[in-house]
Design a protein around this nucleic acid. Structure first.
Length: 273
DNA sequence: AAGGATTCCTGTTGGC
DNA sequence: TGCCAACAGGAATCCT
C-alpha cells in the first residue's frame, strides 16, 4: 500500500516520461474514486502541458501551468504507461493520453485513491494542516517530543497522524518502532528524549532505505515502469505475527490500534519501561 | 477540543 | 469444493 516511499518511487518513475509532455485526451472509465472525479476534470487536463512534478506527503502534485493535477494513490492505486493498443485491465479507471502516443493509466481496485484538479493547492481539504515532511530538517526530535508531551495517545497513532508528520503509514511506523525498541501502544507522553532521537532517526532511515529499494511490494505495488519494490525483504516485524523475532527469537505479537494491526516483539519492545 | 468509531471498496484468506 | 465472514488499510467525517 502506497506510503511515502511508494509515492516517491511513483513520482520518480513518472517524471522523465511526462515532464514537458502535452495531454491530448482524458478518458474517465469510472469516476467513483474516494471522491467522485469532477465533471470538468478532463476539460482542465486536456490540452495542458506538464510543467513540473513534485510530492507533498502522499500526494503527487503535477503542475499544469493553469493549475494542479493532484493524485493520491490511496491503498491500492498505481500508475503505469501503456501503448494505446494494449487491452484495458480490470480497475483501469482513468486514462491520460499524451501527444506522443502513449497512455498513463490509473488502476485502483479498492478505489481509495483520488484525483482532482485545483487552481490553488490551498483549496485542498486539510492541505494547510499537514505536518512536516519526515525527511526534512523540520522533523527533528525536539519537534516530535514537543508534540508527544501533549497527548496520551499511542505513539504509533502519533507518527501515523498526518498532522504530526506526513507520509508514515502502517508499514513504516511499525518497522521504525521495532528498530527503536518502542512498543506501539506506549502513550506518547511517556516517550523519552532519547527514544525520540532514535525514533526520528529510524523513521528517516526506513523511508530512505525503502525509497532506495523502490518501495515495498506486498501484493501488487509497481512503479510506472512496472517494476516491483523490494523493501519487503527487509521487513522485521510487519506481517510477521506468530513468527519469531529476527533479533531475539521471541514471538511477534500484534495489537490493534486505530483498527490496524500493529505487530511488535514483546521482548524487544516492552510496554513497561 | 480531543479522540475514538465509522465509512468508503475489492481481493484474498481462513473456517466449516 | 463452495460459500461466507473476516481482514487488509488512508484519511475524512461523524460521533461522544
Amino acid at each position: 500500500m502506497p506510503e511515502l516511499p511508494e509515492v516517491e518511487t511513483t513520482l520518480r518513475g513518472l517524471k522523465p516520461h511526462i515532464k514537458g509532455q502535452k495531454i491530448v485526451d482524458v478518458d474517465i472509465r469510472n469516476p467513483r474514486l474516494r471522491w467522485r472525479i469532477a465533471d470538468d476534470f478532463a476539460t482542465h487536463l486536456t490540452s495542458s502541458t506538464v510543467e513540473s512534478l513534485e510530492r507533498r506527503a502522499k500526494f503527487i502534485i503535477i503542475y499544469l501551468g493553469q493549475g494542479y493535477w493532484v493524485i493520491h494513490l490511496g491503498m491500492s492505486g498505481s500508475l503505469s504507461f501503456h501503448d494505446s493498443s494494449a487491452a484495458y485491465l480490470k480497475h483501469d479507471h482513468v486514462i491520460i493520453h499524451f501527444q506522443q502516443g502513449y497512455q498513463l493509466r490509473y488502476n485502483d481496485p479498492r478505489r481509495f485513491g483520488s484525483m482532482v484538479f485545483v487552481k490553488d493547492l490551498s483549496t485542498l481539504p486539510s492541505w494547510q494542516k499537514l505536518g512536516p515532511e519526515p525527511l526534512s530538517d523540520e522533523f527533528d526530535p525536539m519537534y516530535l517530543i514537543k508534540r508527544c508531551k501533549k497527548t496520551s495517545k499511542p505513539i504509533k497513532s502519533m507518527i501515523m497522524d498526518q498532522h504530526v508528520v506526513v507520509g508514515v503509514g502502517n508499514i513504516y511506523a511499525t518497522e521504525a518502532l521495532f528498530l527503536s525498541n518502542i512498543h506501539p501502544a506506549r502513550s506518547a507522553n511517556t516517550i523519552t528524549h532519547q527514544e525520540c532521537i532514535q525514533l526520528v532517526k529510524n523513521i528517516q532511515q526506513c523511508l530512505h532505505q525503502a525509497i532506495n529499494m523502490g518501495g515495498t511490494t506486498l501484493k501488487d505495488f509497481v512503479n510506472p515502469d512496472s517494476r516491483s519494490g523490494y523493501f519487503q525483504q527487509t521487513l522485521q516485524v510487519y506481517g510477521r505475527e506468530g513468527k519469531s523475532c529476527y533479533v531475539c527469537g521471541s514471538m511477534i505479537h500484534s495489537v490493534r490500534l486505530n483498527q490496524r494491526s500493529s505487530p511488535f516483539c514483546e521482548n524487544c519492545q516492552p510496554i513497561n519501561d
